[in-house]
Amino acid sequence: MAMSRHVSGWLQAAPLTVVLGGFLIAPIIMIVVVSFWGATEYSIYPAFQFDNYSYLFGSAVVWKVFLATFKYALITWAFTLAIGFTVAYFLAFHVRSQAMQTALFLLCTIPFWTSNIIRMISWIPFLGRNGIANSALISWGVVDQPVEWLLYSDFSVILAFVHLYTLFMVVPIFNTMMRIDRSLIEAAVDNGASAFQTLRHVILPLTKPGIMIGTIFVVTLVMGDFITVRFMSGSQKANVGRLISNDIALLQYPSAAATSVVLLITVLMVIGILLRFVNIRKEL
């Protein structure tokens, strides 16, 4: 009997193992392997060399690009957190009726009915030199000359990131906030805590797992992105994703693989550090 229980256990785990093995583990192993290969202009050949890595770590530009990637992630994180937390707080604590909550929550998801790229590109005519934003500013007399840094700058890149990814912060935070036992808030108020004190000492600590899940979403999405940076900066700025995509376009697969491996390790380290602060399993 024990034997068959053993077998059925293995069988039950098998489909997931096969899927994860075939579509997650194997490709990652492949990427790691290829990252040691060499490349000519139009082909790659098996080898075991550290050229790709030594170039990566030896180039000042690559360091700068990694730094820029962290910069984008950090700034985007700060904004999405501030906005996401506020929106979730409003939904969870200010909106009383459940129906209204659901309706407003669905409203937040409406932009997601169109494609990522379209939402991003629609900023371009809006922010452009002769775009709506600049025409409005000029007609209001705020500025005389069109503001150039609105488009094709770090500003437009981060604006697009915040726009695209705030919902990933709203959802998990809203979810955790809804689970907070309301009697805890009543107790805090009964004990004379001000609204801010309640927020600071009751709601915020209890929302941490949601914040952490949202953070992981936003940080990984921003660090892995390349298309937003390319379009919103007019190809003028770079993050690690763009390095990889450039390499792939130029058929330098081993170099792209090496960069991917370094990026993967970096992101895993960031998540590892984040998870030390909060036990999100408690939440799940």
Binding site: I124, P125, G128, R129, N130, S233, G234, S235, Q236
Partner: peptide
């Protein structure tokens, strides 16, 4: 000096047509 770099045909058209 540069407003943007373009990679596709459409991008070059839009940059020019919009006056960027």
């Amino acid at each position: 000096q540069f407003r943007a770099f373009w990679k596709t045909f459409d991008e070059s058209v839009n940059l020019m047509a919009s006056g960027e």
